[in-house]
Design a binder for these strands. Structure first.
Lengths: 218, 218
DNA sequence: GCATATATTAACGTATACATTAAGCGCTGT
DNA sequence: ACAGCGCTTAATGTATACGTTAATATATGC
């Protein structure tokens, strides 16, 4: 991927995640090219990449549609993340890593603690993302890393909606700590099981929130 | 993705899977365009898609490199498939599907039996693919379906090497039948566990074969 | 007045022309 | 002879021009 194209990808991702390009909206190649001050060619290539990442769908003469993530989409995504992150946790434990190597995990947990103390949901969400991506990285499977990143991107957008609906996730960090401890102890099966349960609970919470949200919106 | 581009994608995939474009080889956009009798633009777009699918890597001035799949790549891929297919098996069982809905599964098993009786490894491989993709489809998670397809594509290439090295996989079909029966019985945990074990065994076998193959080649 | 056919147009899809860049090669100077 | 500089060149990356197609609107016939 060339420089300008990856810049375009980044710019479009930014616009999508910031909500400037809202889910469900259509955007013509020409308009996007004009906005980004480049020609249609790199825009087309960027859109193809984003389509591959599941962020947009390309439809002839309708432009690029920013893909809305439905409740069933979220369920699918969480199921994938549940399995793959749990494997990563098991693999990380199996690797018998030093405490130093696990620093990103414990650091994220600490930041979540602090954010919770300040009732700062945004900071908590960022640290939570960091925990999960650090966990996946420790699993040392590049395909899982890539897939998890794609899926997390889509989750992130839905969380914008739910972040302020839910109670402060104070108990969630107990889960994180337990998983990290199991990994440090080299107990693969415990790490896997705990993380699996953690993700399943998170899924259930999110789905419930989204459903009540949809009820309010309709 | 437009018609010509998807034709180009299909054509290139064909060339890759048939071995005409051998792993590790480099190919300039211009050459490929000439071969396919189209201009560079759709070729570029097709290559971007294939890069997203992990089949090629694009490097400026070196052309598109057909990605070789190393032993560690195969290990990564099998780990992903193991987790996601096992979840699909569990979900399929949970859905309490009728025997009619499970026909693709049992049909694939039957075809594998026949192929084994004829010692026809190619037919067996095709039916095995069918079994696994049918299983994933029954899981009813579009993301898992997509990921599994991508990963299977890469497995398929490596199997060309190993297909004639291994003993006829006569016992493998017992696994398949047990998984299918568990799904039919609606026993999710059994289906999951059995399939998980099946895939882990397959991974171990494949890795061993690839390693001895590399030894012979070096 | 409605339906159908046709014309217009706007957006996409493809080709091509042009700019950019990096790799290889040769030249020159020490 | 060797090192460093610059030129050539070939391939990519970007822009633009052109062909294609589908949607919309209008006109005509029933």
């Amino acid at each position: 991927m060339s420089k300008a194209v990856s810049q375009a990808v980044d710019a479009l991702r930014q616009l999508i995640f910031s909500g400037s390009l809202s889910p469900g909206s259509d955007h013509l190649e020409g308009e996007l090219a004009e906005q980004l001050k480049i020609s249609r060619t790199p825009v087309r290539e960027a859109l193809l990449v984003l389509e591959g990442q599941g962020l947009v769908t390309l439809r002839p003469r309708k432009g690029a549609r920013i893909r809305p993530v439905s409740t069933t989409d979220m369920a699918e995504i969480y199921d994938v993340l549940t399995e793959l992150e749990s494997l990563a946790a098991a693999d990380a434990a199996h690797a018998k890593l030093s405490r130093a190597r696990l620093w990103p995990l414990f650091d994220a947990i600490e930041r979540m603690d602090k954010a919770l103390a300040r009732k700062d949901r945004e900071s908590w969400a960022l640290a939570d993302d960091d925990f999960h991506s650090a966990l996946v990285a420790l699993g040392n499977n590049s395909r899982i890393t890539m897939i998890a990143q794609m899926m997390s991107d889509q989750v992130r957008r839905a969380r914008m909606v739910t972040l302020h609906m839910r109670p402060l996730p104070t108990r969630s960090n107990d889960d994180h700590r337990a998983v990290a401890d199991a990994i440090l102890a080299g107990d693969a099966e415990t790490a896997r099981t705990l993380h699996h349960a953690h993700r399943r609970a998170a899924k259930k919470m999110l789905i419930t929130l989204l459903e009540t949200h949809h009820l309010k919106c309709v």
